[in-house]
Computed example of a mutant assay.
Amino acid sequence: MKVTPTSLPEVLLIEPKVFGDARGFFMESFNQQAFDAAVGHAVAFVQDNHSRSARGVLRGLHYQLPPHAQGKLVRVTSGCVFDVAVDMRRSSPRFGRWAGGELSADNHHQLWIPPGFAHGFLVLSDTADFLYKTTDYYAPQAEGSVRWDDPALGVVWPDAGVAPVLSGKDAAAPLLATALAFE
């Protein structure tokens, strides 16, 4: 497994070793010992989630605040997405900065997004299956969000070939200046 810090050093790009031949491929998609070593501390995952979305669906930017802050280990098993993490820690010198990249069934890349960061993705393929592990359970009372197209963030979303398709909640998300954030 190769681990590379992104422009947000706490957010890590994880590239599992993939062994392929004419029959297909094999990869170890998760190994607790190797993951803990990569992030530098023990991480306990409590929930696995799976979503399927059509081209142009944009989910995010979401996070959960303490005491239910979530870290997420995300990957795509079918299709392709542009995945984004945003630093939501007001005390961080990188508050409001983002990192992003393509996750796909073809590249097998994963992204570790620790607590304190918002997360979202845009589907670039006809459909995408998105899987993620979380370090805390879903807690609606702790939900936070920030608007995906906030100019203060300046996220450069790629063209999916259609206008972004948002949930009502995501369309109404606050701008960074008024969003709930971590201290």
Rank of each mutant, 00 (worst) to 15 (best):
84 V>F: 08
68 H>K: 15
89 R>W: 09
99 A>C: 12
166 L>T: 02
108 H>V: 06
150 D>P: 06
122 L>Y: 11
93 P>V: 11
119 H>Y: 10
134 T>V: 15
100 G>S: 09
92 S>Y: 09
83 D>F: 06
108 H>Q: 10
75 R>Y: 01
94 R>E: 10
90 R>M: 06
152 A>K: 01
145 S>W: 01
105 A>R: 01
144 G>Q: 11
112 W>Q: 11
91 S>L: 07
113 I>G: 05
75 R>A: 07
83 D>W: 00
107 N>E: 11
140 P>I: 12
104 S>N: 07
87 D>T: 10
82 F>P: 04
78 S>P: 00
67 P>C: 10
87 D>I: 09
70 Q>N: 10
84 V>M: 05
100 G>I: 08
117 F>H: 15
167 S>K: 02
153 L>E: 04
142 A>C: 15
75 R>S: 14
113 I>H: 05
159 D>T: 00
66 P>C: 06
157 W>F: 08
105 A>L: 08
91 S>A: 15
78 S>A: 10
128 A>P: 08
97 R>G: 03
100 G>V: 09
94 R>V: 02
118 A>T: 09
150 D>Q: 03
166 L>F: 01
166 L>R: 00
144 G>H: 09
67 P>D: 14
131 L>Y: 13
165 V>A: 01
66 P>Y: 08
101 G>Q: 11
139 A>C: 14
156 V>R: 09
107 N>F: 07
152 A>I: 02
78 S>W: 00
84 V>Y: 03
154 G>S: 02
111 L>E: 05
72 K>G: 11
141 Q>T: 15
69 A>E: 15
139 A>P: 07
162 V>E: 05
127 T>C: 12
158 P>L: 01
133 K>M: 12
157 W>L: 08
87 D>P: 09
155 V>D: 02
89 R>T: 13
153 L>Q: 02
119 H>L: 12
165 V>N: 00
101 G>F: 12
123 V>F: 03
84 V>K: 01
136 D>H: 15
125 S>M: 07
131 L>I: 12
111 L>R: 11
94 R>G: 07
131 L>Q: 13
154 G>V: 03
103 L>G: 07
136 D>N: 15
102 E>N: 05
149 D>M: 06
150 D>W: 02
82 F>W: 15
106 D>K: 04
134 T>L: 11
77 T>D: 00
140 P>M: 10
94 R>A: 11
115 P>M: 12
148 W>L: 07
90 R>W: 02
122 L>S: 09
121 F>R: 02
167 S>P: 03
77 T>I: 08
163 A>S: 07
159 D>L: 00
110 Q>V: 05
89 R>Q: 15
135 T>N: 14
141 Q>L: 11
163 A>D: 13
68 H>D: 15
82 F>L: 08
91 S>Q: 13
117 F>I: 14
149 D>Y: 00
73 L>F: 13
120 G>A: 12
